[in-house]
């Protein structure tokens, strides 16, 4: 749902740019405190993966397709803020190099998908996954959050279109939310499949907020997170 130039009124895109610049700044600040060394290459891999996966449109119903958003996937592995930055990097790159999403609409696209979709999605995931100790809760949280992230982003997109006077809210909101409720099912299936593989092979890659040191962490990690928590 990359918004092109021309869909948003000047006031709308200027305001969403301002919110997104603030959101990215805040995310950089929050990420600096929690970014562990092992997460640096993971952020590279996630950026590459989200970019590649977003190229793969899958059909959802007659004549309509959707693709992975990847925000919840990134946030489950990197945490909400590094996840949001990963999505923002992908969206900026897609806009500047591939003309996917307009430059004026970039602020809205970053807000909908990287900030609301990713950080908001992570919030829902966290409520269900709790301390990540239970695999089933992690997967259930991932599924629900993945679906919500897509629907939430589409609702915000609809609101921006309505505020811009591009389409009446009463029509564009149900239309966007309806189609994206279907695309969100694809998002949930893909995200849960990937997280299932990661839980089986490298469960330590699942992001755990500071303070929830679990047995699956190595001693070195426990010590360093304890040290971070104290400082």
């Amino acid at each position: 749902m990359h918004i092109p130039d021309g869909f948003l009124s000047t006031n709308t895109w200027l305001a969403s740019w301002a919110i997104s610049v603030g959101g990215i700044g805040y995310s950089i600040k929050k990420t600096a405190g929690v970014l562990k060394d092992r997460m640096v290459p993971l952020m590279g891999v996630m950026s590459a993966f989200v970019f590649a996966a977003q190229m793969i449109n899958f059909p959802v119903m007659g004549g309509t397709s959707g693709h992975l958003l990847g925000g919840v996937l990134a946030a489950v592995l990197l945490g909400p803020y590094a996840g949001a930055l990963t999505l923002a990097c992908v969206l900026i790159f897609q806009c500047l190099i591939f003309q996917d999403g307009g430059l004026t609409a970039l602020g809205a696209n970053v807000f909908n998908m990287a900030i609301a979709g990713t950080i908001g999605g992570y919030g829902i995931y966290s409520l269900i996954a709790e301390d990540r100790a239970n695999e089933k809760r992690v997967l259930a949280g991932t599924a629900v959050a993945a679906w919500f992230s897509v629907v939430m982003a589409s609702i915000l997109c609809a609101l921006e279109l309505a505020i811009s006077g591009t389409a009446p809210l009463g029509i564009v909101l149900p239309a966007m939310a309806g189609i994206h409720a279907l695309i969100g099912i694809g998002e949930a299936i893909i995200t849960v499949s990937i997280i299932t593989v990661i839980l089986k092979t490298r469960p330590d890659l699942i992001y755990r907020p500071q303070g929830t040191v679990t047995v699956s962490l190595s001693n070195r990690d426990s010590l360093s997170s304890l040290r971070q928590g104290l400082s």
Binding site: A32, D37, V45, S47, C89
Partner: peptide, 18 residues
């Protein structure tokens, strides 16, 4: 090309933040 570049950008941004 996009995927390789994106890996470098994601990695680079993480290094800069660190």
């Amino acid at each position: 090309i996009g995927t390789m570049a994106m890996f470098g950008i994601g990695y680079g941004v993480a290094v800069l933040i660190k």
